[in-house]
Simulated scan of single mutants.
Amino acid sequence: MRFDQPKTYSISLTGWGFWLGSLAGAALLTSLGLGWLVTGLVALLLLLLSLPILVLLAFRWWARRWITTDHCPVCGSESQAVEGTRFLCPDCGEPLFVADGHFYRQTPPGTIEVEPLEDSGWELMS
C-alpha cells in the first residue's frame, strides 16, 4: 500500500451505464414535466435582457440625487458637480465646493468679502 497517493474513486458511465442514466434522467424530466424548465429559461432570458435597462434607471436615479446643477457665485456660469466635492469653475477658475445643492466659494478663514460701490463722481483731494 502506498501512502503518498490518495485513494480516488470514479464512476464511469460508459456503455450501458450511460444509456441507463440518460433514460432515467429523461424519465424523471418526463414525469415532472418540462414546462417548469422552459418557464425558467424564459424568465432567465427576460432578466438578462432587462438588466441593462434596470442598471440605466438606477444610474439615472443616482445622478439626479447626487449631481447638482447651479450657478457660479463669482461669474454666474451654470455647471454641474457631485454633491460634497470641490472643483474649479470651468469659466472663471474660482475654487468652489458643493453643499446642500448650491455652489459656494472656498475662501480662507478671516477673509472679508466686499462689493465695490459705483463711482459717484466724487474725487479724493490729495
Rank of each mutant, 00 (worst) to 15 (best):
D4F: 08
P6D: 11
P6N: 01
P6T: 05
Y9K: 09
S10Q: 04
S12M: 02
S12N: 12
L13C: 07
G15P: 01
G15S: 08
G15K: 03
F18N: 08
L20C: 11
G21F: 13
L23I: 11
L23R: 06
A24R: 02
A24C: 13
G25C: 13
A26H: 00
A26V: 12
A27V: 08
L32E: 13
G33K: 09
W36I: 04
L37K: 02
L37D: 00
V38T: 14
G40H: 06
L41T: 01
L45F: 14
L47Q: 02
L51P: 00
P52L: 14
I53T: 11
L56D: 10
A58C: 08
F59C: 02
F59E: 13
W62L: 15
A63G: 00
A63C: 06
R64Q: 09
R64I: 00
R65S: 13
I67Y: 07
I67R: 14
D70E: 06
D70M: 02
H71L: 15
P73W: 15
P73M: 10
P73C: 11
C75E: 04
C75L: 05
S77D: 09
E78N: 00
Q80G: 01
A81C: 03
E83H: 08
R86H: 12
C89H: 08
C89V: 08
P90C: 05
D91E: 15
C92A: 05
C92F: 05
G93I: 01
G93S: 02
E94L: 01
E94K: 02
E94V: 10
P95I: 05
P95L: 04
L96Y: 09
F97D: 00
V98D: 06
V98G: 01
V98P: 01
A99M: 12
G101F: 03
Q106G: 01
T107K: 08
P108E: 15
P109Q: 15
E113V: 15
E113T: 12
E118Q: 10
W122K: 08
E123C: 03
E123V: 06
E123Q: 07
E123H: 09
M125H: 11
S126Y: 07
